[in-house]
């Protein structure tokens, strides 16, 4: 269960880093890089689910649910961070 949650959190971090590649200097190139990295993130997620399905099928539901939960918890934390008021300098 913990493994799924940790992996979900790592994948959320990966998705966040990939989106950070989109900059005003090179928006198109950044988009391509972000898309490629997110594709990789998705493949890792599907691959891990596949591995659990093949080798520990009984743990599939718990692993999948914790993977999604871990991802969403990190996403919500970032969302709340983005909502925080920033002081103008």
């Amino acid at each position: 269960m913990l493994g799924g949650a940790v992996l979900g959190a790592i994948l959320a971090a990966g998705a966040r880093v990939s989106v950070g590649r989109i900059t005003p200097d090179d928006p198109i190139g950044g988009m391509v890089q972000a898309a490629a990295l997110n594709f990789l993130v998705m493949m890792v997620a599907f691959g891990s689910l596949l591995a659990v399905f093949m080798f520990a099928r009984s743990a599939m539901f718990v692993f999948g649910a914790s993977l999604v939960s871990g991802f969403l918890v990190v996403a919500v934390v970032w969302f709340l961070g983005a909502a925080r008021t920033q002081n103008a300098h």
Binding site: A83, T85, Q86
Partner: peptide, 18 residues
Amino acid sequence: MIGVRKVSLVPNSRLGSM
């Protein structure tokens, strides 16, 4: 609700800007 908690003329959070 979270995004517009503290409304200001110039948005003062990233979510507010979004």
